[in-house]
């Protein structure tokens, strides 16, 4: 099992990493970088998305992800990252096959619009199927060892994360009997245990930071395990002061336009940048008061390409203290996970 020093020192190490954030903060990028960082030598990590956006594949310059898990990329030290786009319709059929050996009845269900039923009437049922599928991936064993050392989910945005993770609590309450009820309760146990960590991605701006703090409080109130805060798209620039005079001289010496307009424009940009840095410090302070580790990822000026993604993964690994390994215990499924088999 993989161990990160930054994860809780006591209790089991998280194996399900749910990454959430306000839209536009880069949670897909952060989830992908985290998966690469977790995939150290000999490790297998599953990176899953559930919203049908196909946001992961383009980051890896890969074809759209299928429902079946597929090898996606090499991890940082030669581990493996697998990718998967979990789809509720397929998950329902899977589920039925798994529990009822349905065969042709599955086709009947399709014909009768049962799939529609699942995804229409009860988007909640959809979330039940999706979280159930994740739990299956977390607890699956293959030839005597865990199939994945970690599962990273590019999760729903902060506005819906508690609803999503808590749907099984609701359904466990609604479906008092039957496998869905039982299954829901066992998924709810996993999601509320220290085997799960919900990481919050934010950019250094007031609204995303506020949403992060709100989501943090909601997660805590719902007794869901919060992991790290990832402060994304952090800009860096010089903090030294400069006068218009110095700038004019410097520009002239470099053979660059040194007219008044150029000097004023450059100064305005630089000062805005300095203000931004001051603002980032203030946002970081607020986030640190949550009492969770705060990791920082730099804004990549040209957008995120594959090499940029590996850079971010290295940063995450560095800032989070690197990987500490513990001997692999073959077939050792953590308690509370096994019962999904």
């Amino acid at each position: 099992m993989i161990r990160l020093r930054w994860m809780s020192a006591t209790g089991p190490v998280p194996r399900l990493h749910v990454v959430t954030g306000k839209g536009g903060t880069g949670k897909t990028t952060a989830a992908a970088a985290l998966a690469l960082a977790l995939a150290g030598t000999g490790r297998r990590v599953l990176l899953a998305e559930i919203e049908g956006r196909q946001g992961i594949a383009p980051l890896f310059d890969a074809a759209p992800l299928p429902y079946a898990e597929r090898h996606l990329a090499a991890g940082l030290d030669g581990g493996e990252v697998f990718g998967q786009a979990v789809d509720a319709d397929e998950a329902l059929l899977d589920y039925l096959t798994m529990f009822y050996r349905l065969g042709s009845a599955g086709r009947v269900l399709r014909r009768f619009g049962a799939i529609d039923f699942a995804t229409t009437i009860a988007p909640g049922l959809r979330d039940i199927l999706l979280t159930g599928k994740l739990k299956e991936a977390v607890s699956r064993t293959e030839s005597g060892r865990m199939a994945y050392d970690a599962v990273v989910l590019d999760g729903p945005p902060t506005g819906r994360i508690v609803k999503f993770l808590n749907v099984t609590v609701e359904s466990g309450r609604l479906a008092k009997t039957g496998p869905i009820g039982r299954h829901s309760r066992s998924v709810a146990r996993l999601l509320h245990s220290s085997l799960t960590a919900v990481h919050l991605v934010t950019t250094p701006a007031a609204m995303p930071v506020q949403e992060t703090i709100d989501a943090h409080d909601e997660l805590e109130a719902a007794d869901l395990p919060v992991g790290h805060v990832i402060l994304n798209k952090v800009v860096g620039s010089g903090t030294v002061d400069v006068t218009a005079e110095q700038l004019r001289d410097g520009l002239a010496r470099s053979g660059l336009p040194a007219d008044e307009d150029a000097v004023a424009a450059l100064l305005a940009e630089y000062r805005t940048g300095q203000d931004e840095i001051a603002a980032i410090d203030a946002h970081r302070d607020r986030l640190e008061r949550l009492g969770r580790p705060v990791d920082e990822l730099a804004l990549l000026p040209e957008g995120v390409d594959l090499s940029g993604l590996y850079d971010l993964a290295r940063t995450l690994r560095r800032s989070t203290g690197g990987l500490r390994r513990s001997p692999l215990r073959p077939g050792a499924a953590p308690e509370g996970v096994r019962d999904a088999q």
Binding site: G238, D241, V242, Q246, G250, L266, E269, G273, P301, E302
Partner: peptide, 21 residues
């Protein structure tokens, strides 16, 4: 190495590259 003018120029270059992307 700590030229403030260079810092200003790098800030602009960053912005220009971001904008172009």
């Amino acid at each position: 190495p700590d030229s403030p003018v260079a810092a200003v120029l790098r800030t602009h270059a960053d912005l220009a590259r971001r904008r172009a992307a």
